[in-house]
Amino acid sequence: MTTHPPALVFDNIHKSFGPVTALEGVSLEIGRGELFGLIGPDGAGKTTLMRILTTLLLPDQGAAQVLGYDVIKQWRNIRREVGYMPGRFSLYQDLSVAENLHFFATLFGTTVAENYDLIRDIYEQLEPFRKRRAGKLSGGMKQKLALCCALVHRPQILFLDEPTTGVDPVSRQEFWQILNRLQDQGITIFVSTPYMDEASLCDRVALIQDGHFLAVDKPGALAASYEHPLYAVKARDRFRLLQDVRQWPPTYQAFPFGEQLHLSTRTEIDPQQLVGYLTQQGHQEITVTPTAPTIEDRFMELMTH
């Protein structure tokens, strides 16, 4: 048995920019071949953490190793082994698709041909536009090209900072399918996203808010650890419904959730009890059904703790 160091390990990372604290003691260990999601809103500290792990920023405190290399002392080794796709797809807008790819391949001391099998799937979709300038591609195409560029030197670990932001749902879905295939090839993937619904596509996720990890777990386990009974409630007048549900004594919390609202209660309730209360308040077309909590519900619960 070989004892590989873990793909990624960091402990008690702190980072501040002047008076603003971006990270406040985050720790994690990620195994080889894992598809790990870093999930949280803008300003939670996702990009700062990405940059520390890709050796672009120094932590104020704490230690981190990527593929067993220290991010502070052995940054040169790390830069040779990782693929990185920053937030805004960092392509040269005035270079064509083929030129961008060729540039990044050469930069990493390799050729497109050498690792073509790894990017074939993705690049085939770009092939018809190979002479087009990157600036003229659609968001989804830019995203795919940026991924190709980050993959062209066959990195062992891939850091993707919000790769699906600003991209339409079709491209988002295709992108996650690509990530799954890369994972099958043994590449470790560390991806950040503000979209809660993408959590379920990862092996494990960390929920991040204000520089803290709220939780680290498998997505299914995270949703299941929701602590209160949860109901989906619907009626015709949503705004008034929300006010009235919040006045109802058994209510713990009530939030809009799509066209419904999600109601968490202190103890199990009989849905008919609530229907009765709401009818009394003059609501129409009332439905109350128990519902399964989502990552988003759990995120909110952890935020209010």
């Binding site: 809103p41 939670a44 503000p194 705004f239 929300l242 809009p256 935020m303 209010t304």
Partner: peptide
């Protein structure tokens, strides 16, 4: 509401509901 945390997002939608009301 792109990119905001889930609670702020809901507070925002509540404001929208209120305006619509």
């Amino acid at each position: 509401t792109g990119g905001v945390d889930p609670i702020t997002r809901r507070q925002f939608w509540e404001m929208i509901y209120q305006a619509a009301d």
